[in-house]
Design a protein around this nucleic acid. Structure first.
Lengths: 245, 245
DNA sequence: GGCGATCCTTGACCCAGATCAAGAGACGAG
DNA sequence: CTCGTCTCTTGATCTGGGTCAAGGATCGCC
């Protein structure tokens, strides 16, 4: 692991307008810039262990990380998927509640916890943005509870694909020639851990969705979606997402 | 429904030190006091419908409410249990994402949304406390994801009982003669909706825990716990809650 | 080009929990 | 006291997804 510090100016940062710093004015950004530092992690590396003392907080700049919980007997549940701009760590708490693991090579923009907390108390724009992001995550977690508690395996897979499609549509704004397509950033096993299934069931349901023409696969990580509405219907989500009347 | 306004002074409020106002100084409390109003709801009454415009936010003062999601075909998942001091509503969002329902008679301390948001932007203590509470709820939601995704029916029931025991221990500090006991504030069906089970399975697993001496029942809502460690073990939680070395 | 190491797919079988069904308490209204 | 309405329990049966097992793809490395 080489912790080479690519020193990017905050103004040029790819996540400038979505991360915890999104609302900062130029001068506030300057103060953040003084205390930030970059860290790189390799795919597969654990960033934070549950129960560990948290030395830093920060934002995912590039790459993907997961938040997981494990029971003593090895049962695992993924409880969060961290994409670029997502925040890691919890100001006001000293130990981590969950494992954070890089699933791809990853770069984080870090702040030592204490200086960040100090800055937060004097910079309302940071606290405001963090509250907003935390409320969004809470809503997302509650959506996920519906999935885990009540959806069928097929609905779970369809939901996961549509969520990943939505999230990286928001990030990349890539729409290759009208046809929506997504790279799954997770192995079958990781998907299973996210969805509360086994990897065999994940594999079977992906095959079933493919057979039924809901998705097509190129390689086993790249998914194309010929008809997004069809996929959303399979996901069992309220069509038109609660936009009533 | 009688909306009789019991006008309690904030200083005497039972949730003064746990609710969103917990960190406020006397003068800040005064400003909150000016815009607050009380509303009562009957058991069973829906407080907010998912998708509705949210006119107010507020704190549960007494009673219990639930946060639920429903799919078109009627499958339900409870995604939150709101006890006294818990906050309802989301500053910065105009429509509700989930149904909020009173399961007992309930009193809320409400604020119209706009004035509350204005006050929040000038009173960092409110925003700070709300962030803290939201982060706690997010952690709780993630714990719940492990339960929904990976625990067995028996573990789910044991977890629910121990969570309710812990939460109202924190609230009441009642320890009747050493033996821990709890009133379940939910029907079997509501428990099922919370745990991602059917009511029959809930009933069967409660009977099984009773047969095995993990709990005893007086009536079917009142549970006594002869041995809390035994219950926690049945819940499958890390014993000693991650306090390693 | 062969050889591991991963990761993924598919089949056969099984079981925890869902579903269907019947009744037992508990309790308020008349 | 009786009736109706909830809520809860228990039994019988079914099934979606778990478990166990056997390969197949893909890829990097020697």
């Amino acid at each position: 692991m080489h912790d080479h510090s690519v020193h990017v100016q905050c103004g040029d940062c790819p996540i400038r307008h979505r991360a915890v710093c999104a609302r900062c004015e130029t001068d506030e950004l300057g103060r953040l810039e003084q205390i930030k530092y970059y860290r790189s992690f390799q795919a597969g590396q654990t960033i934070i262990w549950s129960g560990d003392r948290m030395e830093f907080v920060g934002s995912v700049v590039t790459g993907i990380a997961t938040l997981t919980q494990t029971m003593e007997d090895g049962r695992r549940q993924m409880v969060g998927l961290l994409l670029p701009s997502d925040f890691v760590g919890r100001p006001g708490r000293s130990t981590a509640a969950f494992d954070v693991t890089a699933t791809t090579d990853l770069v984080m923009c870090c702040f030592r916890k204490k200086p960040f907390e100090d800055l937060m108390s004097t910079t309302p724009h940071i606290a405001q943005r963090l509250l907003e992001m935390t409320l969004d995550e809470l809503d997302a977690a509650r959506e996920w509870m519906l999935l885990l508690g009540r959806k069928t395996a097929r609905e779970k897979i369809a939901s996961l694909i549509s969520i990943i499609a939505r999230r990286d549509a928001a990030l990349h704004v890539r729409r290759t020639s009208g046809m929506l397509s997504v790279d799954l950033p997770l192995t079958r096993e990781e998907m299973a851990d996210y969805l509360g299934l086994t990897l065999e069931t994940v594999s079977r349901q992906i095959s079933a969705l493919k057979k039924d023409g809901v998705i097509t696969l190129e390689g086993n990580r790249h998914v194309s979606i010929p008809d997004l509405d069809r996929l959303l219907e399979e996901a069992g989500d309220d069509s038109d997402g609660g936009m009533l009347v």
